[in-house]
Nucleic acid binder design. Structure first.
Lengths: 336, 336
DNA sequence: CTGTTAGCGCGTTCAA
DNA sequence: TTGAACGCGCTAACAG
């Protein structure tokens, strides 16, 4: 018995002078009324002494369950996913589950070279999947694994948790309209995700109902440089917008730069709004009017739904409302 | 044989008309010279047809290996870890390994309630750990699991990958000194991590060698509000610093706000520098002079080192140099 | 109340 | 070149 390898339940049994099954019962916590308190104590003591910890692989093999769920995100670089993870992990640990994070395969370059086989993906080493911000394309990828979709819009018959982005966008647009704005520029994320489609549509609806309302749109990548160019194009139009509605706080940062480059002061000459309310929103000058999305709550609700799903009941779709946060980047337009 | 459960190697064997062991050999890729090419083909075909994929739990139990490594980070909210993950995942998949991310337990609130047992942590369901940005306190946590420490400084006998933060900070300080600055303010991260201790020390060294050099310091949390307050305190000193050296780009954002609140223009009245060169650095106005740290490279090198470690050889400590990126936030001091 | 037994799916001897 | 048998560590029947 080499001291290098960790102790097994058999070792604990021997140490405590009982059988493996007794150890299993005691460690599993379901011994009440089946094992005498005295032996239970001695088993615990032996386990403690040996530093015993059950082998998860064996456990998994036997039980078919791993008490681990996977949070899949498109990319780790977006500041949005930190809170989502925190929320999910909080409720997970409360139920004895662990959470691991991974990105969609192509992010890490599936063109790795070796590893043709299906060994790379952590599939099936987990009980369920929390899939966040899916591209409209991806789907069914995880055949048979219980999944909850986050921030991906209504989706067939799989349970979902979404933000009320349409309401959020409407709140922004109405805020701007009530300030007196009529000519809106939409700096749109050119990403094929439900949330951005929903934002665009909600904005259109509101502007359509504004007397004399006009909406211009330019698409960009979600990065500062690309956003700056898109905003620049918008500001170059003959009928220049007096307000730039950005699909994301980061895009708003690009809009700030475009405004500055054209000599436009925010909010006096141009109002700018963001979306998400990440750290960046208060790092900018002036601070950004945006919509706060309860990201941590989404993680928590998503995990709750997944736990229900694993428990056998189909969770209801959930929608989490955003909240308009008015800061210094919006004001009445310069000249009516 | 319920259609719901996934096919096993036994099913494949039956389908192909061979024995389990043959399937195992073929799927394991080590059949050359032991199984006839014809049967190998038929096994592959059968596996394909059935959609067979080996059960990772059984594999792990038998092999004692899971081909998965864990990247542990203090928090997911820092934009720094995205690239680290990307780099690590890239080389991992190239070697048939998967990467999952998790945070240090207390982040998710170990005060979950239930789950006393040691089941929560994904320990031992992984082959190795990439531990990033450890607090000086944490250590040995992972007993026996091969680990590489990232961005945690020299550390006993465990392999490390670090940034050349001291050189980076020296580059910043010399840049400022050559511009003519003499009175430096250090807006320091009040976090007990090696990297910040190293930064502070390097800055002190350079300032000590500057004729007439003076160094003031205020500590803060790594968030905009706290950084703003610390910077504000520095700017309130009688001998006001002409340059604020910030431990982090986010802290620099706070310094920007403090400067603005005091009516100081950057860079004319005050130079500001950051560290890390994250997205935020170019979102600010003016863009931030900072030190770019090759985060993705750190992930890649760390994974390479871990793979070596798992292969049985002790990797050399690695140091990745940062690079000074001069942008618009630094200039000669107003009045010598 | 406790011990014995069987088997989860796989990789690897050992014989044939 | 292939197949039968064994055991990784664990849990859940079933005996005692």
């Amino acid at each position: 018995m080499p001291a290098t390898s960790r102790p097994t339940s058999k070792d604990v049994a021997q140490e405590a002078g009982v059988s493996q099954s007794t150890v299993s019962l005691v460690m599993g916590g379901k011994w009440t009324g089946r094992v005498s308190p005295a032996t239970a104590r001695s088993v615990h003591a032996a386990a403690e002494r040996l530093g015993y910890r059950p082998n998860p692989a064996a456990r998994n093999l036997r039980l078919g369950t791993t008490r681990t769920v996977l949070l899949m995100v498109p990319t780790l670089t977006a500041p949005f996913f930190g809170p989502v993870y925190t929320g999910a992990a909080r409720v997970a640990t409360g139920h004895g589950f662990g959470v691991v994070v991974s990105t969609w395969p192509d992010d890490a370059g599936t063109a790795g070279g070796s590893a043709e086989g299906p060994f790379t993906a952590p599939h099936e080493t987990i009980d369920g999947i929390l899939a966040s911000s899916l591209e409209a394309a991806a789907l069914g990828e995880f055949a048979g694994t219980p999944a909850v979709m986050l921030d991906s819009g209504p989706h067939g018959d799989v349970p979902t948790v979404d933000f009320g982005v349409a309401d959020g966008m409407r709140a922004i647009a109405r805020h701007l309209a009530s300030l007196g704005h009529r000519r809106f520029g939409h700096v749109a994320a050119g990403v094929d995700q439900w949330t951005f489609h929903a934002r665009a549509q909600a904005l259109e609806e509101v502007v359509r109902d504004v007397p004399g309302g006009a909406l211009l749109r330019e698409a960009c990548e979600i990065d500062v440089g690309s956003a700056k160019e898109a905003a620049w194009r918008l500001l170059a139009r003959s009928e220049r917008p007096t307000a730039l509605v950005c699909d994301d706080d980061l895009i708003a940062a690009g809009a700030y730069k475009a405004a500055r480059a054209r000599g436009l002061a925010i909010p006096d000459d141009l109002s700018v709004t963001g979306f998400d309310d990440v750290l960046l929103a208060t790092a900018l000058e002036p601070e950004l009017t945006t919509v706060r999305l309860p990201a941590e709550e989404m993680g928590a609700q998503g995990m709750t739904a997944l736990l229900e799903l694993l428990g056998g009941t189909r969770p209801e779709p959930r929608v989490l409302p955003g909240r308009l946060v008015v800061r210094g980047s919006t004001a009445p337009p310069h000249q009516g």
